[in-house]
Amino acid sequence: MREFFQLFATPGFYAMILQLSTPLVFAALAALVSNKAGVLNIGIEGAMVSAALSAALLSTLTGSAALGVLAGVLAGILMGLFFALCAVRLRTNHILVGIATNILASGVAVFIIYAVTGNKSDYPGIAMTPWNVPILKELPFIGEILFQNANPLIYLAVIAVIAVRFLFRRTVLGVRILAVGKNEVAAASVGISPARVKTIALMIAGGLAGFGGAYLSLGYMSGFNTGMVAGRGFIGIAAEAIGAGHPVATALFAVLFGAVNAFSLAAQTFPSFAIPYELLNTLPYLTTTIGLVIYSVLRYRKAHPSPTHKEIKP
C-alpha cells in the first residue's frame, strides 16, 4: 500500500499520465470534430494506425522525426478524405465505412511492413527529441512533470484543444460544421454544401487523429508495431461521448482515461501489489465503460425524469 501512495508523490507518474493522455486527447478531439458534423467516425482507430506507420516510415527514410510527424498527419488527413469519399459521396453507412477503413488500415499496415522489412509486426522509427524548457524546468515537481523531457506533441495537444474550441466558437467554418451537423437540409437551404463541409470536418478529424498516431510511434515509443493503437481511437470516441461535445470536457475525460492507463502500467511494477498485469490491463477499458454508462444514465435521467422525482419537486 505504501508504494501506492508513493506513486502519487512521484512526478514521473504524472509525466506518464501526460504521455498516455496525449494520443487519447487527439483521438477524442477527432471524434468531436466529426461528431459535430453529424458523422459517427469509427475510422479514427484506422487513421491512427496508418498515421503511426507513415510517421515511422518517413522518419527513418528522411532521418527527421519532424518530417515523420508531418507524414503521419498527412496520412491521417488522407484517411479522413477517404472516409468522407465513402460516407459522403458513396453514401455508405458510417459505421460500416469505419469498420472498413479500420480493416483496410491494419491490413495495409502489416502488408507494407512485410513488403519493406520481411517481418509482420514492427517497424523502427526515429523518436522526436523531447523538449527541456529552460528556467521553467527548474521548478520543483511541476517543472519535472511539464517541462523536462516533454514531447512537443504534448504541448500541441493542449493547443489543439484550444484550437478546436476556437474553431467552433469563432470561425465561419466551425459554425458551418455545427449547422450541417444539426440540420443538413437547413444548412443546404442557406447555401452551405453539406458534402463539402463534412469532407472538410472529416479531414480535420483525420489530421488530429494523425497527430495522435504519429505521437504513438515517434513520441511514446520509437517505432511502429501492429498492436500499438490498441483501441485508443475507440477510447477517444468514448471520451467524446462523455464530454458531451465540449472540447475541454472531452479532453479532461481523455486525460482521466490516460491516468487510469498510466496507473495500470505503474501498478505492474509494484512488488507487493498482487494483481497480475493482465487484469490491470483491463482497467482503461473498464473505466471507459463505467464512465460511458454513468454519463448515459445521467443523460437518460435528465431526458426521462421519473414521476416520483416530479412529485417531490413542486
Binding site: T92, L96, A100, T101, I103, L104, S106, V108, V110, F111
Partner: peptide, 14 residues
C-alpha cells in the same frame, strides 16, 4: 503477405 485480403475485404465492404 496474406494481408492483401484485408484490402479486398475493406473495399468490397464499402
Amino acid at each position: 503477405a496474406q494481408e492483401v485480403v484485408q484490402i479486398i475485404q475493406g473495399l468490397i465492404l464499402i
